[in-house]
Structure formats: structure tokens, C-alpha cells
Nucleic acid binder design. Sequence first.
DNA 1: ATTACTATTTCCCGAGTAA
DNA 2: TTTACTCGGGAAATAGTAA
Lengths: 236, 236
Amino acid sequence: MLSLKEKLLIFLAQSGTYARSLSISTSAIAHHLGTSQQSVSRILIQLEQNGYIEKVVVGKTTLIRLTDKGLDELRNLYIVLKNILEKPMEIILEGRVFSGLGEGFYYISLPQYFEQIKERVGFTPYLGTLNIQLLSKDSIENRMLLEKNADIIINGFSNGQRTYGSARCIKALFNGEQEAAIIFAERTHYGKDVVEVIAPVYLRGKYNLRDGDKVFVKVILKTSSHNDKVLAAEVK
Amino acid sequence: MLSLKEKLLIFLAQSGTYARSLSISTSAIAHHLGTSQQSVSRILIQLEQNGYIEKVVVGKTTLIRLTDKGLDELRNLYIVLKNILEKPMEIILEGRVFSGLGEGFYYISLPQYFEQIKERVGFTPYLGTLNIQLLSKDSIENRMLLEKNADIIINGFSNGQRTYGSARCIKALFNGEQEAAIIFAERTHYGKDVVEVIAPVYLRGKYNLRDGDKVFVKVILKTSSHNDKVLAAEVK
DNA sequence: ATTACTATTTCCCGAGTAA
DNA sequence: TTTACTCGGGAAATAGTAA
């Protein structure tokens, strides 16, 4: 994927070849990068001509060091990627309201769920869920992305008669403004093209919604990095 | 520098072509990247074959979106660069001790300098500086790097009779262990191949140093990023 | 307009080898 | 041992053009 030039610059930077010269043979580098000695030699010459590295021949060995310009090249790329990847991402799910069978009311009403939602999601939920049938392929794929990132855990429980599954929530803005959360139930009879939304208000009432009306939920993902947990831990 | 594939992936990511499809023509992309429409077309096909992007033809326009795999490709590169560039850097200056003309003692003894050093550098300086004649080209280049990064400012002043120049310090470890600081005087008659070190102890005594003895100072640079000020501000 | 094919050129990689 | 040259094969970029 990366060109040999970049691989080589990265290898040199990784080897600490900045702020100090290092003696490495072209064949050793070639072995590390999985390429030929000749290519390394050729590219080192090019990098030197472009001012990315400095080479000094000292007796038998050649000392190499990255220049400021060479490190800047990597820094620039880093900054570009940082701006892309560390930027909070707006995820929008778009779809149409539809009626369920009242299970939303039933489950949210259970005190074991209700109290957990109140405490962990941060609002007192209206007793019911709004079902949204997703419209586009994008929204359906984004639903999967959000499910992965839903980090508010609602634990399942058992009341002796039966067990109740767990769920995962993520805070969202209904129609881009109203505080809400998407709730992904562990056990659901809906498919991947449906999301259920909870909110501290009666959404159908506030927005005068009828089945078939178009709505959307917006979620801000803080970072797209894999190590979300690490980053979250650093935040405080 | 970057291969067209990477440029294209980055361009797509920058355009927000993740989490949503976007309609862009190959010639528009080509224009942005400074390449030909044919190349963009070819590479889009390759990226799709490799699973980095998805293309859907909708009527006249083609919708493009980055896949998870595509974004992962950028994330991996980002992580590699982050590990290189965000890692604290150890800078070592190596050289030989030599005697000055006692100006070190004179200047450090001036209460205006002495108090600033005590407060800003964080130790009560021994009344004198240790002069080090740098030996290698690396050390001399590193001296310039450190001078750029020396962010402890000692202000100049005037006592009516004459003016005294400002200086910049950076904390260092003398011989890798002893708390010290390098002081870069605004007005110095030494060249770029000399550094002056201050410390809370008499270094010549502690290390039994005579002129010509080899010593080194180590400085840990927190990051090699350009925006040192921003980062320093975040540190607290 | 668009995308993507084919043909041509240009560039890159690496084997062989000299110094 | 090194590094770096030449050169042949092949990949990548583009011009021309079809659909």
C-alpha cells in the first residue's frame, strides 16, 4: 500500500534516525522492508537528493539521519490523518416512524430497566420507544457502527419467572435537537434496519408524528479510533 | 510523495466519505489530486476490488463511500506515525569540558538573573556555568534543535549603566542523571558548537571534571510536533 | 456530460555486477 | 563485506476513445 519511499522514511524515523545518525546497511533495511538492496540504495539516493535524509560515508559504513524536512514530511501526513481521524464524527440515521406492538412500553416500564436507564443514560425515559424503519443503505450500515459504539450498558436480569436480556444505549439527538438515546436490545425481533429510540419526552406528541413520517437521529462519535476505551480513560 | 492510492483514500476520508456515500466524478477527484481522470478511475476500481471503498451507480452519478477496511488502512498508518511522532524524544549533546573566562559566575551571580533562574528553572543554581565544546555534527545540530525548544525564558534587564540580554533555558540531565539546565544566552561570544550548563550543584566538583573530559547532557523533548505551545498548554 | 477500455509511454523494481 | 551502477521486465500513468 505505502510506497517504498514512505516505508523507508517511516523505518528511519522508527529507528530513531532523527537527532542522531545511524549506521545501517542497505541490505539490512531491505530485509526489514521486504524489498531488494538495490531498491533501498536507489531510494536512499533519491531521499538525499530531495533533502529528506543526510548520508555520510565514514570508512566502511554509511551513517544516515533524517533531516528536519524528512521528519516534516511524516509530520504533515500525521497532521492530515489526525484531522480526519480525531475529528468527532456526525452519524445520521434516517428513517420512517412505525408502530410496534407496545413492547417498548412494557420493557421500559419494568423498574429494573427503568432505573438503570434513568441512572446511566441520564434522563427519566418516557415509557415507550419510538421505532424507526431505516431507509438507506448508509443508515443501515451506520446503525451497525453505532451498535458497536453504544457503550451505555443496561444489564439484563431475572425475576424468577423469566430472564430479561441486556441492552446497549448511545446518546443521540432526535431530529437533530431533542435529547434522546438509541437503545439496542440484545433480544429483539427487529432486524438490522430498525432502531428504537427513547427520550425524556413523548416524541410522537412533541413532533406530532404518525406512522410513515420521516425522522432522523444524530449521534456524535467522539473519535473513530479503535482504542476508544484508552482515549476515554485519558479524558478523565 | 504519497502514492495515488493513499492520496485517494485520504481525499475520500477528508470529504467525509465515511458513514455516508458521496457523489463525486472521477475528473473532479483527478483535479483535486493533480492527476488524470483515467488514473482515478483505475484506482477506484482497484480500491473497490480490495474492499477499501464501495461504489454504487445511481443513474448518472456514482456514489462512493469508504468502507471500514478503507478507514482502517488510514488508521493503521495514523497509529504508526503517532507512535513515532508523539513519543518523547531523547536528545543527547556530547562534548568536552573547557574553561571560560569566568563570565558564567559573573552573570549567574547577578540577582536579576539568579532569581529568575531560581523561580523558572526550578532550582537554586550553582554560581557558574559549565562550558561544553560539542564534538559531533549530530550534537551541534541537536543543539540547534534544543535552542528552538528551550522554552524557559530568562528576561534581560537594564541597570542604568548597561543592558543585559535575555536567555532561554531547557531542563536537562547532566551525564544522564544530574538535574541541570542548558542555558542559551542571547548574547554570547561562543559559537553554535558550545553549550553552557547550569545546575544546582558544582558539576566540576561532583564529577571531578578537568578541561577536556568528555561529558554529555540529555534532554527529553515531550513531542516533536510543531504545535508545541498548544500541547504544552494542554499539559497544564 | 460521465466511466472505463486499449495502447503507449514513463517509471519503478530487482537481477547482475562493478568498484 | 559494502554501495550503486546498468538494464530488462513489468507495473503504473496517461492519451485517445468508446459507450
